[in-house]
Design a protein around this nucleic acid. Structure first.
Lengths: 173, 173
DNA sequence: CTCTAACCGGACTACCGAGTCCGCTTACGC
DNA sequence: GCGTAAGCGGACTCGGTAGTCCGGTTAGAG
């Protein structure tokens, strides 16, 4: 399976896109049928690429994590470390909150895929912003993660951006 | 159905206890069979008292809310308003965290049962503690609720008591 | 003790979701 | 074009859960 036939490739992408939409909206309990219907294929086609439903969920989560990873690397390349940090966190917020169901999916597959690398990148971003004097030096990366998570998860419907801004202001040097 | 036969009454209680245990441990997705088995009855007996599974979940949640209600009224009767407030919050913490699955159950049934009255009592408890000078006056009851919730939900496994203590210290006058 | 209404639970149905199979269709190398 | 390997999806099985039914059992009043 070094190379997929063109139609298969197209369907694979459709399936992944559909799965992302569906799981993001309804969490990992959504049915494979639902995904297949949204992708416009039979559900056997889904199972051909992803032998079990969990494999499908895993693939979606992996993609999601990859997006965060991309944001993180972008932040590390950006010229201004402080701005990069704050933009990164806000970007993560947008990404996570636009797909509420995915958090449950991550939990569902034991948050295996690449969480460690992502953590490592986050650590670097924080450290860089601290060296540049943009973020107070008495917080650790894990604190940042916890504060952000609590802002995102406990904010009343639709107000998470305000909450996140408050937390970010509190992190400024 | 003004009065239940003795055996029926006994079984009803067993079922409610079992349902509480099961749903508290596994959330609202646990099966009715599971509950019936744990209660030592056939599942038809469960369905006789609770025509649908949702009715059963509802009853369990109602009971849970009633316990919180009881804690709240106790707190309002206690002589020292400050101590009452802090004990109340810690009591709520113990209650909620001893039944992790129940939160999902509450969400599952749209948190209908008596949330408003409970809110009202909470409001009174906070106000009383503030008048007594035990709690800082620049927070509102809704802030307290939010802070407590965030402490309970974002604390790492097993550390919620520490987190809650931090929040409570922060609320002292 | 007896009689009956209330109660009980095993067995049944209906349905839904995961995963498999197989005959039909189609991309693409020659 | 043509042949074929790859791809496709409708129809199936299988397991598990919500909800129903009915024949046997028991509480408790008279």
């Amino acid at each position: 399976m070094v190379e997929l036939r063109a139609d298969a490739q197209r369907n694979l992408e459709r399936v992944l896109d559909a799965a992302t939409e569906v799981f993001a909206a309804s969490g990992p309990n959504a049915s494979v049928d639902e995904v297949a219907k949204r992708a416009g294929v039979g559900h056997a086609t889904v199972f051909r690429r992803f032998p079990t439903k969990d494999d499908l969920v895993f693939a979606v989560v992996e993609r999601h994590v990859a997006q965060m990873h991309a944001l993180a690397e972008e932040a590390l390349r950006a010229p201004d470390p402080g701005e990069a940090f704050f933009d990164f966190i806000r970007g993560i917020g947008e990404l996570v909150m636009s797909m509420p169901g995915l958090h449950a999916c991550v939990v569902h597959c034991g948050e295996k895929p690449g969480a460690a690398e992502l953590d490592e990148l986050g650590r670097k971003i924080v450290a860089r912003a601290q060296r540049a004097g943009a973020v107070r030096k008495d917080v650790e990366p894990s604190d940042v993660q916890l504060l952000v998570r609590s802002a995102l998860t406990t904010a009343p419907e639709g107000h998470w951006r305000r909450y996140l801004d408050v937390v970010l202001d509190g992190l400024r040097a």
